[in-house]
């Protein structure tokens, strides 16, 4: 398995993500700078990490979504390569048009940084196959702009097509229908606000994030 983690100016979860991928899946994992026009050959997984790319200027993820490397990521996603966007990565994927909807300022205005409960809504994707449908897991969030918005037709379509991957078990940030993570139509792109890479070892206080990476490994290997 081969993986790449994209780094933007202001990314701050890139190394955590790379360590989680490398340690759990054994994938050869490369950090790729945002100015790169090309990605390494033969990638199975591209991760867009959390952070504050470009200082969240204009809108969270807006600048990063227009960077050269994202054009290559969009092409790879179209070829079926798995793309995982976490937190700022989720914001970037919506801004890039790879996922529907938008992440707006948290309804309560405050930055939310704590471990939250998630329900696994659908375990048929590469990212969620390590879980059972309906299972509740504990994964931390840390964001200011995590309030998922899409019009009601889009939300109905997402639900109808089984593209809601994770839902918060409580109202964390005002997200429509408590959506915490969504898949693209092909099921190979997942965006989620919670940080699975921060919950992979007992020392983190839990390891519920680990199975996301284990599931990917099973799917790809």
């Amino acid at each position: 398995m081969r993986a790449a983690v994209i780094q933007f100016p202001g990314s701050n979860c890139d190394r955590d993500m790379a360590v989680a991928i490398r340690d759990i899946t054994g994938a050869e994992t490369t950090l790729v700078w945002h100015r790169a026009g090309d990605l390494p050959d033969g990638l199975d997984l591209i991760a867009i990490p959390g952070g504050f790319s470009y200082g969240d200027y204009l809108r969270s993820g807006a600048m990063a979504a227009r960077s050269p490397v994202m054009q290559a990521v969009i092409k790879a996603a179209e070829r079926g390569v798995s793309v995982l966007g976490v937190c700022n990565g989720f914001q970037i994927l919506t801004e890039a048009g790879l996922l529907p909807g938008a992440l707006m300022r948290n309804a309560g205005i405050r930055f939310v940084c704590r471990t939250v409960g998630l329900t696994v809504e659908n375990n048929s994707s590469a990212f969620t196959r390590g879980y059972s449908t309906g299972e509740q897991v504990q994964i931390p969030v840390a964001h200011h702009d995590g309030n998922y918005f899409a019009d009601s037709d889009t939300l109905d379509r997402l639900e109808g097509e089984g593209r809601v991957a994770f839902r918060y078990t409580e109202n964390v940030n005002g997200s429509a229908r408590n959506i915490a993570g969504v898949l693209n139509a092909g099921g190979n792109v997942l965006g989620m606000m919670p940080h699975p890479e921060r919950m992979t070892e007992a020392v983190h206080g839990g390891s519920d994030g680990r199975r996301l990476f284990e599931g990917l490994l099973r799917q790809i290997a």
């Binding site: 919506t94 909807g101 938008a102 707006m104």
Partner: peptide
């Protein structure tokens, strides 16, 4: 449409 506004919202 490409950058300054997010047409979703």
């Amino acid at each position: 449409t490409k950058l300054l506004a997010n047409m979703v919202i």
